[in-house]
């Protein structure tokens, strides 16, 4: 099939949009990994909870769903902190596979608690801006996608400023670079664990809100696939590297959509892993990864 420029650009936009969700998830995972050196495989379930929190508040209050970022992020931060304290802290420093096992347990718990609260039927809401489109270079793009992309950029910039310019952010980075040394200079690393896990969960909550606003459907089981892909992105970009997560997210978002365009939708999920395997064969630590151990 011949791909015209207009289709190419259009698919790029869908890729960028998909990339935004992945980036938010992957950045959160990476922040947690940097500080705690653990991976939360149940991260996608936090996205799902974020989606439902947004949905519930939207139904209850009728607020503009974008404003509900102010609800989903803090609520998810609290949930994240609880999960860190109850599940991940007790296993810090034990076997490396334990966090995967804990995550499997968490996946079952979160999905089914959500199903009990919200039932497992598919839900969807509508953005108040759904009628508005913007024409850029001859392409009609619904304004929601632009807002989503801008929101993601703003959140990332905020995170950057927090990490680079504040004392707390400095402490997080210090812990991430060298936990023991951070402890020696008097940083409360356990607080940093909570903080990073909370922020990571908050980013997943933001991703959940953006998922809902774009009119995508969701149910309690929808989190696994994006989470697994986000983790693939983390590995592609390199464990612990936030720029890696951003670039990896963009690569995957765009690659997936071009796969659908060229090979077919059946390959959409598999392409993430094909890229993952290829990258790891060529660069075993990912594109921007720190040397393991």
């Amino acid at each position: 099939m011949e791909i015209g420029l207009d289709i190419f650009l259009q698919v790029m936009v869908w890729g960028l949009y998909a990339g935004c969700i992945y980036i938010l998830l992957a950045t959160g995972l990476n922040l947690i990994f940097g500080v705690m050196k653990v991976v939360n495989f149940a991260h996608g379930q936090l996205l799902m909870i974020g989606a439902y929190v947004t949905f519930s508040f939207f139904v209850l209050t009728g607020f503009n769903p974008y404003v509900l970022l102010a609800a989903s992020i803090p609520i998810l931060i609290v949930i994240g902190v609880c999960i860190e304290r109850l599940c991940f802290r007790p296993i810090l420093g034990t076997g490396k596979l334990n966090e995967i096992f804990i995550s499997i347990g968490l996946i079952y718990i979160l999905e089914n608690v959500a199903a009990m609260i919200w039932t497992d039927e598919w839900k969807t809401i509508r953005s108040p801006f759904e009628e508005i489109t913007v024409t850029i270079g001859g392409m009609k793009i619904p304004v929601d996608y632009l807002i989503i992309i801008v929101t993601t950029v703003l959140i990332l910039v905020g995170l950057y400023i927090f990490l680079k310019k504040t004392r707390l952010g400095l402490a997080v980075r210090a812990t991430s670079q060298n936990r023991k040394a951070a402890m020696l200079v008097g940083i409360n690393v356990e607080r940093m664990d909570m903080l990073s896990f909370g922020i990571g969960a908050g980013l997943a909550g933001a991703a959940g809100t953006l998922w809902v606003v774009s009119g995508q459907v969701f149910n309690p089981y929808m989190g696994s696939v994006p989470a697994v892909k986000a983790f693939a992105i983390v590995i592609i970009g390199g464990l612990g590297s936030i720029p890696g997560a951003i670039i990896g997210g963009l690569i995957l978002g765009i690659a997936e959509n071009f796969t659908v365009l060229t090979i077919g939708g059946a390959w959409k999920d598999a392409v993430a892993f094909l890229i993952l395997i290829l990258v790891l064969i060529i660069k075993p630590n990912g594109l921007f990864g720190e040397k393991a151990e």
């Binding site: 995967i100 598999a270 892993f273 094909l274 393991a292």
Partner: peptide
Amino acid sequence: KEWFLAMVTFGFAVIIQV
């Protein structure tokens, strides 16, 4: 190791299904 292995094996199951 660990996470890499976990993801790659997971991915192979997905790819083989397709």
